[in-house]
Design a protein around this nucleic acid. Structure first.
Lengths: 104, 104
DNA sequence: TCAATTAGTCAGAAAATTATGACCACCATA
DNA sequence: TATGGTGGTCATAATTTTCTGACTAATTGA
C-alpha cells in the first residue's frame, strides 16, 4: 500500500469558535474595554469612533450569546444597562493579552 | 462644562489583526495542521473535507501574507510545494493551544 | 502518448457581514 | 410641553467573504 486513504473527517478545530467570537467587527475593542470595567452602550458608542449603533449592538449581542459578556439592567436611579465580562470572558483575558503582545 | 468631548481616537486594538488573521475560513484548521508539520496543497484539500481549492488557496495566501506560513518550493524528485510555520507562526502556537483549551 | 498528480488561477454567483439612516419608547429636566 | 439622554430596533444598501465550476501548466508514470 503506497497510498492510505484518509477517511477521517478532520477533527473540528476547537479554537475556531472562540476565534470567530472575538474577531467580529468591534469585538476586540469591546472586549478590551470590558476588561477595564463595565460597559455602557452610549458610552461605548462615543469611545469607539466610527462604530454605529447597529454594529455595536450586533457585537454586544453576539458577545452576550457567546457567554463572554453579561448584560444587566441596573435598577438604580438613572435606570441603565451594563455589560460586563462573564467568567468565561474573564478566562479569556490572559489569552487576549498574549494576542495583544504578539500582535503589536 | 458638564460634557467633556472625547477627542481621543481609541487606541487601535493590537490583538485585532492577529485575530482576523487566524479566524478566516479554514485558517484555524490549517494552522492546527501546520503545527504538526509541513503542509501540501492537495493533501490539505483531502484532509479538510468541504474545503474548495479556492478557499484553501485564499487561506494559505493570507496566512503567508501575514507571515504566519512560509511557502517553499521543494526542489526534489517530485517537485512540490510545502507550507510551514514561520517564527511568528510558531510564536502563536501557545496562544492557539490556549484557545483550543478554552474553546472546547 | 495518455492519464494522473502536482498546485494552482479566474470569473461569476451566492451568502454573510457591515454600514446607513430612520424610527421607538422610556425617563428626567427645564 | 419640548429637549436631551438612556438603549436600542428595523429595513435597506453596500461591501466582503465564500462557493462553484471551468480552466491552466508543468511533471511523472504507464
Amino acid at each position: 500500500m503506497t497510498t492510505i486513504k484518509n477517511t477521517c473527517a478532520q477533527a473540528p478545530c476547537p479554537a475556531e469558535g472562540l476565534l470567530k467570537s472575538l474577531s467580529g467587527k468591534w469585538k476586540p475593542q469591546v472586549f478590551r474595554l470590558a476588561v477595564e470595567g463595565p460597559l455602557r452602550f452610549n458610552s461605548l458608542l462615543r469611545q469607539l469612533e466610527g462604530a454605529s449603533k447597529q454594529s455595536l449592538s450586533v457585537a454586544l449581542k453576539e458577545l452576550e450569546e457567546q457567554d463572554i459578556l453579561q448584560r444587566t439592567v441596573v435598577q438604580e436611579k438613572p435606570l441603565h444597562v451594563e455589560y460586563y465580562l462573564t467568567e468565561k470572558g474573564q478566562a479569556l483575558i490572559p489569552v487576549f493579552k498574549q494576542l495583544e503582545v504578539l500582535g503589536s
